[in-house]
Design a binder for these strands. Structure first.
Lengths: 337, 337
DNA sequence: CAAATGATTGACACCGGTTTCCATAGAGGT
DNA sequence: ACCTCTATGGAAACCGGTGTCAATCATTTG
């Protein structure tokens, strides 16, 4: 009669427990108006059958599914993976799952791709990683699509309900202050790409510190990269080949800092004796290269958990301002002058 | 009447096109027995409404969903991310989506976690990344759960339908042969963790080459790591602090090779002049460290695409043996003796 | 010209849950 | 003992698609 192929259904549970589907449904959804004895009886059958509600059927009936999306286009693998783990921390034992979608932010089809992704999957909510998160037109697209979203930002990009934020500007200021306290005067900056808030914020932090100390911030003090190793190396070469010598360089992320280190090596400069280098992110590469990189720990994993919770429990999280603080991580790539 | 909240349904399309929902369904599923004029009429309405079928409803009716799972526990972020991109290459414009699940392979709850994940989400199929893929009990669990799976392997772990394989043993043999051709005689090995097929295979490749050349492979020639930077460094220290000097070391993955490089540095050994180092994987770290690492490119992205296709079109892929060939990538971390 | 054939199409049940609405049973009040 | 009131459980509709099978229609054949 009841075919035993596949997993048990709510009907199987109801029949074996001698109750109606509705009662089983009430047990599953923890309805308060339910006889305790009935609940236990049903739960026993559920455990016995190892019954798990069909998520697709639930999604259909509830008109919402249990999929959290994550859209990224990031040269930094470790950051993305840390983010995924953070999301899993949040959705762990729940019925939610994480759907990932790498995209190419330079593709002309970017918006169409994302639109198709959202419309096809009808996600419960989406998390957008930097640098994509800094695109206001993209946020507008999600609003238009009626898709809940959270942006990971390094500055105030949106209202609190849609934002998980970090204090990049202050963090960089602290890091550069540290260099200044070590006696450094000519401190170069490897900027992030144009149009990226994280890049702008980190540059502002550098300017804050340098200006407060009366140090120069002219155009010869900085070079631009786009958060990749190669562009970091090129920026480092540009700075190191300039007329005046730097004693320290702050790079706007760890990968570019590794590029600067590379550039220093090819020029025969020893780090940190002749050049101090500071990065940003504290991803795995920071502790892996030689010398270990002084950097700023960006609490991406905790931020990811927070982002997921904002999507799952918007009512609880809407009020809460999600500002995550960074932490300065001194390692061996900085020396005093 | 028809509430315009949310996205249009198949009924909206049917009504506006003046046909039944079944006909619309036929259009969506490209049924061949359909009048061309009708098809065009319906397609016009679909385009007009920007109608997209509800995947949850489809999943329910078809008794299968369109979610591919990916289970991983890997210290190497770049590899996991490359894998994700490879899967996306395969499922790109289709209705499939990728659900990721990081797990902790040392957790006592590993199997329960994975079982709960599979049962809850009822995935269409799952891809298992190394080193988890090398666990036969885990494969048995998927079989028991009736969940289609593909394992990513460095050796023959399973039948062709469930396996995407690479030729690690031969690849390492070639790499060590290259070192031997450069005049190296004492070539150390940093093994991968015990019980991992990839580690066993790579070790076998090293033995093949050494034995064929009549070179020693005694217990003082190798040290074990577990694919992380720190264990790679420890293994490197163990080898370098041994009685006899090595001129080259092959590490079973890039991250451990970076650890060996680190160990060499702290001992004042210059690379590659005094010590040559070869890694395996060709992940981003290989080109990022200094000197750039000679390594073996492991075509993970293409393998991931193949794995996804095996799940989506098992009939097409079942016959095909998926053996992916590696490529030797000479960079600057090797010098002749 | 009627019947047979084949191509299209639609009515209806169903996937596995949830919700609405109602019937019923038991509790408490007078 | 009678009558509300509340808790509980069931029947049936529904979410948005798909499968089955019969009905319709045009065309070909005897």
């Amino acid at each position: 009669m009841a075919k035993r192929t596949g997993q048990p259904t709510i009907n199987d549970v109801a029949r074996l427990a001698g109750v109606s589907k509705k009662t089983v449904s009430r047990v599953i959804n923890r309805s308060p108006l339910l006889n305790e004895a009935t609940r236990e009886k049903v739960e026993a059958v559920i455990a016995d059958l190892a019954y798990v509600p069909n998520p697709q059927a639930r999604a259909l009936a509830l008109r919402r599914n249990f999929l959290l999306g994550m859209i990224y286009d990031n040269p930094n693998a470790q950051m993305v993976l840390n983010f995924q783990e953070g999301v899993l921390d949040a959705i762990g034992g729940s019925e939610f799952a994480l759907v990932v979608r790498p995209v190419d932010r330079h593709s002309p089809d970017l918006f169409d791709d994302i639109r198709a992704f959202i419309e096809q999957q009808r996600l419960y909510g989406v998390m957008i990683l930097p640098p994509l998160s800094e695109n206001d037109a993209l946020a507008a697209l999600f609003t238009e699509l009626g898709c809940n979203y959270v942006r990971m930002g390094s500055a105030t990009l949106d209202d609190d309900a849609h934002l998980v934020q970090s204090n990049d500007r202050q963090a960089v200021r602290d890091a550069v202050d540290y260099l200044i306290a070590q006696g450094h005067q000519r401190i170069g900056l490897v900027q992030g790409p144009e149009g990226f808030r994280s890049a702008t914020e980190r540059e502002a932090g550098w300017r804050d510190a340098m200006t407060a100390a009366g140090l120069p911030t002219g155009p010869d003090m900085l070079a631009r990269g786009n958060y990749t190793f190669d562009t970091g190396r090129a920026a480092g070469e540009q700075l190191l080949d300039g007329a005046e010598r730097f004693t320290a360089i702050f790079a706007s992320n760890d990968v570019m800092a590794a590029g600067v280190l590379h550039a220093a090596r090819t020029r025969g400069l020893s780090v940190p004796q002749e050049l101090s280098i500071v990065g940003f992110d504290d991803t795995a590469i920071a502790a892996t290269i030689w010398p270990p990189l002084t950097t700023v720990r960006w609490p991406i994993r905790a931020m990811a958990s927070s982002a997921a919770l904002k999507l799952i429990h918007p009512e609880a999280a809407a009020e809460e301002k999600s500002l995550f603080l960074t932490e300065f991580v001194p390692r061996a790539s900085v020396a005093g002058v």
